[in-house]
């Protein structure tokens, strides 16, 4: 296969010109979904970690069960359950909602685990010093423990956010028209893999900066010790 042919197959300008708007639309959905998943997953994760910090046994048990199940199930299985199985019990949802909900719950489980690990890693003296000066449990949590815990949890947390946000591609399985889905159908319409290459580039365009941002945060947030 010579270079001309290779370019014609994988970087076909004509095909690219015809289908790039599809990829761009997919990018919008991917970005939107990724942003929603990140926000709702992190908020839920922080909430669960705080509830767990109350150390009320029945609640802790529930949270641990939730986190275990969401960490044990493949996210694709969760999405397929929400989209294909729940309509049978009168719980229909759109492809976007199913993917968003599934990935948010998965991210929440991981975020809760990382943050709880961080909370426990903050030395006991910190909460003692804070409580001794009259700060309430909540003030101590928000002003002293969580800022330190989130810094400890940060490397794991950014990895998780990236991994879960990448999984927005799983939405293609339930026909959500995000990048991968659009690229695949464009590529079978065109009989040429150029749209798939465009799709791959679109993912790199979105996630390479996120990965680099994660590395930068990690380096910047390293302990001032």
């Amino acid at each position: 296969m010579d270079i001309q042919q290779l370019l014609f197959t994988f970087a076909n300008a004509e095909v690219a010109a015809r289908y790039w708007p599809d990829i761009a639309m997919g990018m919008r959905i991917t970005l939107e979904l990724g942003a929603w998943v990140t926000v709702s997953g992190l908020i839920l994760g922080v909430g669960l970690a705080l509830l767990r910090a109350l150390q009320w046994r029945p609640l802790t048990l529930l949270i641990v069960c939730f986190a275990d199940i969401m960490r044990a199930l493949p996210p694709l299985v969760v999405i397929i359950m929400f989209y294909f199985a729940f309509p049978y019990i009168e719980l229909s949802m759109s492809a976007f909602t199913a993917t968003w909900l599934a990935l948010s719950l998965v991210l929440a489980a991981y975020a809760e685990e990382s943050l709880w690990g961080g909370i426990r890693a903050v030395s006991k003296g910190q909460s003692e010093a804070a409580r001794a000066s009259g700060l309430s449990w909540w003030q101590c949590m928000t002003s002293v423990i969580l800022p330190q815990a989130s810094r400890i949890a940060l490397p794991g947390l950014t990895n998780r956010v990236i991994a879960v946000a990448k999984n927005t591609a799983l939405g293609s399985v339930v026909a959500l028209s995000e990048i991968l889905n659009n690229a695949q159908s464009a590529s079978s319409n065109a009989g040429n893999p150029t749209p798939l290459v465009l799709g791959a580039l679109a993912y790199l365009l979105i996630f390479i900066p996120v990965v680099l941002l994660g590395r930068w945060l990690e380096a910047r947030m390293a302990w001032r010790r």
Partner: peptide
């Protein structure tokens, strides 16, 4: 507790 200050063996300054 505001009326009772406390100084710790390990200082327990907030590193953040």
């Amino acid at each position: 507790r505001q009326k009772i200050g406390m100084v710790f063996q390990q200082f327990n300054l907030y590193p953040h």
